[in-house]
């Protein structure tokens, strides 16, 4: 594969709250190649959304702040850009779809006005051309009667339609990277499938790279080329979809995969990982997953394991691997 278009290195986004400094994203490194779909998986509060918002520098500040690391988009460090230059990237080279189509569109402007805004801001099209382009975009995302829908308000559309509008807005300037933050979580299952299909199609037809934030392993299996599993502000495992599903190495990933109900198995209770996500703070030591891990060892509480590459493109952050590695050597 080619040089990655997005490279996140040791990103640290902290929130400064009354309860102290919370390292929501604590040294995350990820990369997305051109035309690739990267899934970022993890449960709520693991820092996956904060990571994605950091890429567009949309972290609400205060309380949030990117305190360290680098985000390189095509060789430019996004974190060093001026706000003006950053605006030129948002919605243009990198755009984003959010989780809640119900609240992510402005209720007081028509669908067309909202899409056109992005087009006018970045492409400088005249009114007529921008409208024609907007109709094209609506048609492209599979909205019926785009010529009339363009003048409707968000409240007149269903959830699935609104998410299509969000996607039309996101792709209206032909982005190279699309960040989809749980784009299907708020939708019905049948609509979910349609929206995922649409994103996949845009990826294949236009070669748009996608960073898919989700907590749904089904979505990952369906959509992604590679996966990064996050836990408590850190990437714990990274690999191709095949690696993650066939040979999960980190106990957390193994737990996640076991929690997925299977069609051909009759089980009375679904598997779940015991315990809770730890409350994050800056003085944490050791492995974040130690409290919930089946294979926990005393060393896990002392030392934060490194993310080590165990086979080509498959990396995991667990002390077990080091133990195994030593055993193998011995």
């Amino acid at each position: 594969m080619t040089q990655p278009i997005l490279q996140i290195e040791d990103l640290r986004t902290h929130f400064f709250t009354d309860r102290g400094e919370i390292p929501a994203v604590d040294g995350v490194s990820l990369h997305v190649h051109a035309g690739e779909v990267l899934g970022v998986v993890g449960e709520s509060g693991c820092g996956k959304s904060v990571t994605s918002l950091s890429v567009l520098r949309l972290i609400p500040s205060p309380p949030g702040k990117i305190v360290g690391g680098a985000i390189r988009f095509k060789e430019r460090d996004i974190l060093r850009l001026k706000e003006r230059e950053m605006r030129g990237i948002r919605g243009n080279a990198i755009s984003m779809i959010f989780q809640e189509p119900m609240t992510s569109l402005n209720p007081l402007f028509t669908v067309g006005q909202q899409i056109r805004e992005a087009v006018s801001a970045h492409r400088g099209l005249g009114k007529k051309e921008a409208r024609a382009h907007t109709v094209d975009m609506l048609r492209k995302v599979g909205i019926p009667r785009p010529e009339s829908i363009i003048d409707e308000y968000p409240h007149q559309l269903s959830g699935g339609m609104r998410q299509r509008v969000m996607i039309a807005m996101a792709i209206s300037c032909g982005p190279e990277l699309l960040i989809a933050d749980e784009p299907t979580t708020a939708l019905d299952v049948t609509i979910q499938a349609q929206i995922l299909d649409l994103i996949r199609r845009l990826n294949e037809e236009n070669g748009t790279a996608v960073m898919m934030i989700t907590h749904d392993l089904g979505v990952v299996a369906e959509m992604c080329d590679r996966v990064a599993v996050m836990y408590a502000g850190k990437v714990v495992e990274e690999g191709t979809v095949r690696h993650i599903f066939k040979n999960p190495l980190h106990p957390y990933t193994q737990g996640l995969i076991q929690s997925v109900p299977r069609m051909n198995e009759q089980r009375r209770r679904l598997f779940s990982i015991p315990g809770h996500v730890p409350i994050l703070h800056t003085q944490m030591r050791g492995c974040r997953f130690a409290d919930r891990c089946q294979h926990v060892m005393p060393a896990c509480y002392e030392q934060l394991p490194e993310l080590v590459e165990l086979e080509a493109g498959h990396r995991s952050r667990c002390l077990l691997h080091e133990v195994k590695f030593k055993e193998d050597v011995v």
Binding site: L56, L58, P60, E83, R87, G88, I89, R90, G91, N92, S95, M96, F98, E100, T103, S104, L105, N106, P107, E117, A118, A121, H122, M166, M169
Partner: peptide, 16 residues
């Protein structure tokens, strides 16, 4: 200002 659609507007690349 904390609503989702304001975030969307920012994500579109509009000026503050």
């Amino acid at each position: 200002m904390n609503s989702d659609y304001v975030r969307t507007a920012k994500a579109k690349g509009l000026s503050q």
